[in-house]
């Protein structure tokens, strides 16, 4: 694996991909990353988050106005949780047999509340990109930490193996937002924090899984 820097050529042909640009028919990296020449894959070592439909995020309720919640996600994108659609039948807060009473379908949230959600739509508004969020869930207690969005795949691991290992080893619930905010709650939060810091520092060094299980077994000592 070769380290690639912004401006380095990664292909002699035009390849449309994230973290790269095409110029004069050739493809150049725009962030620092690793080139896996055998697979022709470019893996960013650092990157910012580009939201996509279906992305899981963790954020903080920043504002609530006219039944719309604004969610801050430590990114240039602003998240919105819109009021649930009015039921077609049953009007006036009545009961819709299929959906239940619509007022009940959304938790009341306050400024500063921690929330997880999914990106339903990436919308380009007049002055910035807005993310319409879906399936919000208020998270109580716990702790938020910031991680580098490019390290999120390593924190989760292949088929969530790393994440499960972290959760078991620290007896914590860990929600990893693709926006780079992670919510930790449970028994040994400081240990979980330490392990995640280690994953971030050493994400590019082989044998990470073993070192993390060692750290967890020794309770960080």
């Amino acid at each position: 694996m070769k380290i690639v820097l912004p401006g380095d050529k990664i292909s002699d042909t035009p390849v449309r991909m994230e973290n790269a640009i095409v110029e004069n028919g050739k493809t150049y990296a725009t962030v620092i990353g690793m080139m896996d020449e055998s697979r022709g894959a470019f893996i960013p070592l650092e990157s910012v988050w580009y939201p996509r439909e279906g992305d899981f995020i963790v954020g903080i309720i920043e504002n609530s106005k006219n039944n719309v919640y604004t969610v801050s996600m430590d990114s240039p994108f602003r998240g919105l949780i819109l009021p649930p659609p009015r039921p077609r039948f049953g009007g006036r807060g009545g009961r819709d047999e299929r959906f239940g009473r619509h007022e009940e379908r959304r938790e009341i949230m306050h400024m500063g509340d921690i929330v997880s959600a999914f990106v339903k739509e990436v919308k380009r508004e007049a002055d910035q990109i807005i993310l319409i969020l879906d399936r919000p869930r208020r998270l109580t207690g716990g702790k938020l930490i910031e991680v580098r969005p490019s390290k999120v795949p390593r924190i989760i691991g292949k088929e969530s193996t790393m994440l499960r290992q972290l959760e078991t080893g620290t007896k914590c619930t860990i929600l990893v937002g693709l926006n780079g905010i992670v919510w930790l709650n449970g028994e040994d939060v400081p240990l979980a924090q330490k392990a995640i810091a280690k994953i971030q520092e050493e994400a590019h060094v082989g044998g990470l899984t073993e070192r993390i299980s060692e750290l967890l077994e020794n309770k960080g000592r």
Partner: peptide
């Protein structure tokens, strides 16, 4: 920077 959770 994200604000610290006092509870935690």
């Amino acid at each position: 920077m994200i604000a610290e959770n006092e509870e935690y």
